[in-house]
């Protein structure tokens, strides 16, 4: 059901994570992702996972919500894990299903798959947390601020940010609209949820045409309304919200950098091998 999609949604709150400066949150996420991909051992990866779980708890977002966003990406996770098992032939052979051929499940493949799953989960956890705890407007404002040096290169940063604000604002509206149009056409027997592939594709026309027509209508009405509210190119617009870094951002930065450094350091340090967590990706 389209109504169940939660990715990109914002859950208003007052937690430590909600109160972080959105610019800081974006930067933190980048640092976290880089660190995550530098991790080469299970031990450091688990450290990163623990950190992200700790952040989730701090955000007071219901774990059920997080699980729902996970479920949506589960297919991709499983798919990449399977690829890893199939194509990685490093390490000892664990299982050789076919007598002929070279295909075999190896320790390297299994390690790789598990490693990948943990890494993706850790990645999704914090990425979805960013949108769950930051409103779309703040997020785009933050991106606009972070990208503002590009103005020197004549990149229309403001217009891009405004486009993103509007896109985010209209996602729920359009999802609802798609839902209604699909229901209405299904009520006329459109084979959107039954019938053969060809029939389904044909039935999609009855959804896309009205959606397109209505999107154009919305766009033109919105443009009119924005003009009425004195929007021009918006280059010199002032803002209601001024973003300020606070002690929270400093504290979060210290913890994140400490954890990332520890994780990356441990990846290359013999402690992990002593604890029998072998580096698997070389």
């Amino acid at each position: 059901m389209i109504k169940d999609i939660t990715i990109g949604q914002f859950f208003p709150g007052n937690s430590f994570v909600h109160k972080l400066d959105p610019r800081a949150k974006i930067l933190f996420l980048i640092v976290y992702i880089v660190a995550l991909f530098l991790c080469r051992s299970f031990f450091s990866l688990l450290l990163m996972l623990a950190f992200s779980l700790f952040t989730v708890i701090l955000s007071r977002i219901s774990p059920k919500m997080i699980w729902k966003s996970m479920k949506a990406i589960l297919v991709i996770v499983v798919f990449t894990a399977v690829l890893q098992i199939v194509y990685n032939d490093k390490g000892d052979i664990l299982w050789k299903p076919f007598a002929s051929g070279s295909f075999a499940v190896t320790t390297g493949g299994v390690y790789g798959a598990v490693f990948l799953i943990v890494r993706i989960i850790a990645l999704i956890l914090l990425t979805s947390l960013l949108t769950y705890t930051t409103s779309a407007t703040l997020l785009t404002d933050a991106i606009e601020k972070l990208l503002s040096p590009l103005k020197l290169l004549h990149v229309p940063v403001h217009s891009l940010a405004m486009m993103m604000t509007i896109a985010l604002r209209f996602i729920p509206t359009l999802l609802r609209e798609i839902d209604i149009i699909m229901s209405a056409q299904k009520a006329r027997g459109a084979m959107l949820d039954n019938g053969s592939m060809g029939q389904r594709i044909k039935a999609l026309v009855s959804v896309f045409v009205p959606l397109l027509v209505s999107s154009f209508r919305r766009a033109s009405e919105l443009a009119t309304a924005m003009e009425c509210r004195c929007y021009t190119d918006g280059a010199n617009r002032t803002r209601l919200r001024v973003m300020r870094f606070s002690w929270r951002d400093a504290a979060a930065a210290v913890v994140l950098i400490a954890v990332s450094f520890a994780a990356v350091f441990l990846s290359f340090c013999p402690i992990s091998t002593i604890l029998l967590f072998q580096p698997v990706i070389s």
Binding site: I180, A184, A187, V205, P210
Partner: peptide, 21 residues
Amino acid sequence: AAKARFQVGLCFQYPEYQLFA
């Protein structure tokens, strides 16, 4: 359930927004 869609005709609000042909 599929048959019921034809037996019970449902016309949504602002149905003109669903015209497409």
